[in-house]
């Protein structure tokens, strides 16, 4: 296997990893907010259902969830929701991995968000009420930014874990960064791709750290 070939495969892998990461983040944050409302729902059955769901997702390995989402529909119902053959980046495998990641991370985020909301003093909600605000005005105008400020550190931890978790998509053969021909690399003892990958992750995480520090600084003008 030539340098060019490995190199181009790695580059495609980088792209897929980045795409998986970004889409997961963009979709799981709002979904996490939605599940958080479910966790705090005064209507008991919904609250209960959401709690069980979050418990199930947080209590099982991500790898298992990947297998379940990808294979179980076809095994049980003969449904080919996710086509098994790769054509484009948005093939069935990628979609299955994305769905799994989004659900998994949304559950983690929802619990973080719940903690953030619970941390806001009751007085903030009451001050909003007394000033004639609606529930949604209180949430979006008064509470949300304070919650964002308090959850930035735990969320940034999760996000950094997500960068590295994307490599799990390999188990359902998503062509992410690790999806290079292992045997060939090993038998020929080509070491550089491994460094290449390591540097990629370090840079990625470094960039995110800078970004989160920036957000934290931007929000440091007030005390929540």
């Amino acid at each position: 296997m030539s340098f060019e070939l490995i190199n181009s495969k790695l580059l495609v892998g980088f792209g897929t990893t980045c795409l998986l990461f970004l889409l997961t983040l963009v979709l799981s944050l709002p979904l996490g907010l939605l599940i958080m409302f479910g966790l705090k729902c005064p209507f008991k059955p919904i609250k209960w259902l959401c709690n069980v769901f979050v418990w199930a997702i947080r209590g099982t390995p991500l790898m298992l969830q990947l297998f379940v989402v990808f294979y179980v529909p076809s095994m049980l119902f003969g449904l080919r929701i996710f086509s098994f053959t790769s054509t484009t980046v948005f093939d069935g495998r990628f979609i299955a991995a994305l769905i799994t990641f989004v659900i998994n991370y949304a559950c983690y985020f929802s619990v973080i968000f719940r903690g953030g909301v619970d941390n806001i003093s009751r007085g903030q909600f009451e001050a909003g009420k007394v000033l004639g605000m609606t529930k949604s005005q209180i949430f979006f105008k008064v509470i949300l930014l304070q919650v964002i400020k308090t959850v930035i550190p735990p969320v940034s931890n999760e996000v950094i874990t997500l960068v590295k978790d994307t490599s799990l998509a390999r188990v359902i053969s998503v062509a992410e960064i690790f999806f290079i021909n292992e045997t060939e690399i090993l038998t020929k003892a080509i070491v550089w791709p491994l460094f290449y990958i390591g540097v990629f992750f370090l840079l990625f995480v470094g960039l995110l750290t800078v970004l989160f520090n920036y957000i934290e600084k931007k929000l440091s003008y007030f005390k929540a």
């Binding site: 903030q124 001050a127 004639g132 008064v142 400020k149």
Partner: peptide, 18 residues
């Protein structure tokens, strides 16, 4: 609407910090 008839000043201020 009814709440708007009254104002309430709390012991702990409860200003909006942001």
């Amino acid at each position: 609407k009814k709440r708007l008839n009254f104002g309430l000043v709390f012991q702990s201020f409860n200003l909006f910090p942001q």
